[in-house]
Design a binder for these strands. Structure first.
Lengths: 226, 226
DNA sequence: CCTACCGATCGGTAGG
DNA sequence: CCTACCGATCGGTAGG
């Protein structure tokens, strides 16, 4: 767990920049380890309060070694955010495709999106998106606009669902503002949610959806018709 | 604006720890200036990315001088948060007392609370509460629990209003979760709101209230009866 | 509140 | 990926 070599032999690993041969697949794994450790530390302590030495230690490296994989601390932060957004979008797309086939009801689709968002935000291994949400001050303008594209992709899926609810008169305010307020309500949960006590993610999702589209026009119960 | 002495004479200010005499009231003012500058910088760049030198420069002091007024950088951060919460609570109490006399309707009271919260969060000179919300990782556990008391006072005012709405069947979910989700929706606006474009704070408050208690049971229009 | 300063830490690099 | 290291910056202090 401390040293990167798992061999039982006492053989020293070769020094120098490793050649990329087919039987050396450590490289990619170490990079992934660094990103995961960075996500966890950036989330717990914040970007500025986390040193590259902290990250190196967390994966059993020495202080200079992370810079073999990333050219700067900022690049490591961006990698966390970028990977977080790509993973989140993939999961959202999968969840929605599965749901679309079964329930064409807009309220049910909103519930799927909300539930999935809570999972991404609060579920196991959920450090990447909170880091993206709360450390965006520390990336460059160029990086921010690259991320904005990914965020836009993620959010664009919500648009038709909210639009449909609005047209059904089930949304209390304009779609654009509703989206911003709803994301706020969800994203803020990363600040107070405690997995070990209180509501489950399912209960949370139910409560959120009920708060937003309430017991409006369409009466509760019988959301899906067989 | 650069030097603390406004005299036209070239007289040097006396060195050494100043005695507290009645004709020296600079002391308190400089402290306030430091807190204001700290709030602005902590908000824009974050606590860790702001140096005490930045703050000193912002008020025309030299690098060591802030420590004459505050024993540490952390004490300066806590002063920002503490003052922000006390000010916010005072303003909320004033707004609510005024509203209670006029409109006893729970929905109208919620709208007053929401509008006031947006003002505290997004109005002119509104750096203190965002700093409190987004830099709480940087204070000690002891400070955090002191602040929690103030936050609890601030939030307690919302409880009876939400409770009344819940009993009227106008709240889609349990009161406790509603409070957390609503504060999330509001607090997140500090991340995206741009005073120079888009909705006004009044429009924002209308939209938020409409989203939360929607066009539920009681029909819209005629909220107050003359 | 300024001057002069210190110890610690940090991001990053050369060279292997 | 390690070793050894550097320049810069930072929070904080003594002494007046």
């Amino acid at each position: 767990m401390q040293t990167p070599t798992a061999d039982t032999t006492a053989a020293r690993r070769p020094r120098g920049r490793p050649r990329k041969t087919l039987d050396e697949r450590d490289d990619g794994n170490r990079r992934v380890e660094l990103v995961n450790a960075a996500a966890r530390l950036f989330r717990r302590k914040g970007f500025d309060a986390t040193s590259t030495r902290d990250i190196a230690t967390a994966v059993g490296m020495h202080s200079g070694s992370p810079f073999y994989h990333f050219k700067s601390k900022g690049a490591l932060l961006y990698a966390v955010m970028d990977e977080g957004m790509r993973s989140a979008t993939l999961r959202q797309t999968a969840a929605l495709e599965q749901a679309c086939a079964a329930l064409p009801d807009a309220a049910a689709l909103l519930r799927v999106l909300v539930r999935n968002h809570f999972d991404i935000l609060l579920g196991p291994g959920s450090d990447f998106i909170p880091v993206m949400l709360y450390e965006s001050r520390s990336i460059t303008a160029r990086q921010r606009s690259s991320l904005a594209k990914l965020q836009s992709d993620y959010e664009s899926v919500w648009q038709p669902v909210l639009q449909a609810l609005s047209e059904q008169g089930r949304l209390g305010c304009p779609v654009k503002l509703a989206r911003l307020l709803i994301f706020g309500a969800l994203n803020w949960s990363a600040q107070w949610f405690d997995a070990k006590k209180g509501a489950s993610l399912d209960e949370l999702a139910d409560a959120a959806v009920a708060l937003f589209i309430g017991n409006n026009p369409k009466p509760p119960g019988r959301r899906v018709r067989p």
